[in-house]
C-alpha cells in the first residue's frame, strides 16, 4: 500500500512538472518546473532501490545542470518570453501533438505485447548483499572500466569545446 502511495506521488510530481516545462511561457518557470520533475524521478529511483542514482540525480541534475540553465537564462535576459501564439512553421503544434500521441501509443502497445527481456543479471545482481553504491562501484571499476575511462575523455572534450565556443574572437581593434 505504501509502495503505491510513494509511486503515485512520485509519478504525479514528475508528470505535472513535465507538463509545466512544456506549457510555461517564461524559461525560468520551465527550469524550476524541470527541478520538480527531477525530484519526482528521484523519488521513483529511491522506490526502486537505486539510492545512489537518486542522490546523483538531485546533485548533478538539480544542482548543476539546472543551475547552468538558470545561469544562461539570466545571462541572456529573463524578460525574453516566447510568444506562444506565433507559428513560424505552419501547423507545427498540431503535427507535434499528433506525433506525440503516436509515439505514446507505440510505447504503450510495446509494453502490452510480449517482448524478450534477455538474460538476467549479466552484470551482477542488483539485489545481492551490499549497499547500492557498493554494487555500482564494483561494476564500474570492473566490468565497465573502459567505458568509465572514456567518459573522462568525453568530459575533457566537453570542457574544451565550451571554452572554444564561448571565446570571444579578438579583432585587430581589440588588441590596439
Amino acid at each position: 500500500m505504501v509502495d503505491w502511495i510513494v509511486f503515485v506521488v512520485g509519478a504525479v510530481i514528475a508528470i505535472a512538472g513535465a507538463l509545466g516545462v512544456l506549457a510555461a511561457k517564461q524559461p525560468v518557470h520551465s527550469a524550476v518546473l524541470l527541478v520538480m520533475t527531477l525530484f519526482g524521478v528521484a523519488v521513483l529511483f529511491v522506490s526502486q532501490e537505486a539510492h545512489f542514482l537518486a542522490a546523483v540525480q538531485v546533485i548533478v541534475y538539480a544542482g548543476a545542470i539546472v543551475v547552468l540553465f538558470l545561469f544562461v537564462i539570466m545571462l541572456l535576459g529573463v524578460d525574453r518570453s516566447e510568444d506562444v501564439r506565433v507559428e513560424t512553421l505552419k501547423a507545427q503544434r498540431q503535427i507535434a501533438a499528433v506525433l506525440g500521441v503516436l509515439a505514446l501509443a507505440e510505447l504503450v502497445a510495446l509494453s502490452r505485447f510480449h517482448f524478450v527481456l534477455g538474460t538476467k543479471s549479466v552484470a551482477g545482481a542488483a539485489s545481492e548483499p551490499g549497499a547500492n553504491v557498493e554494487l555500482i562501484g564494483k561494476s564500474v571499476f570492473t566490468r565497465y572500466l573502459y567505458p568509465f575511462e572514456i567518459t573522462s575523455v568525453l568530459l575533457v572534450i566537453a570542457v574544451i569545446g565550451a571554452v572554444v565556443l564561448s571565446r570571444r574572437i579578438r579583432t585587430s581593434e581589440d588588441v590596439r
Partner: peptide, 14 residues
C-alpha cells in the same frame, strides 16, 4: 532503472 529492478541487474543502473 526499472529494467535493472525487473531483471535484477546492476548494469542498468551503471
Amino acid at each position: 532503472v526499472t529494467f535493472a529492478r525487473m531483471l535484477d541487474d546492476i548494469g542498468g543502473q551503471v
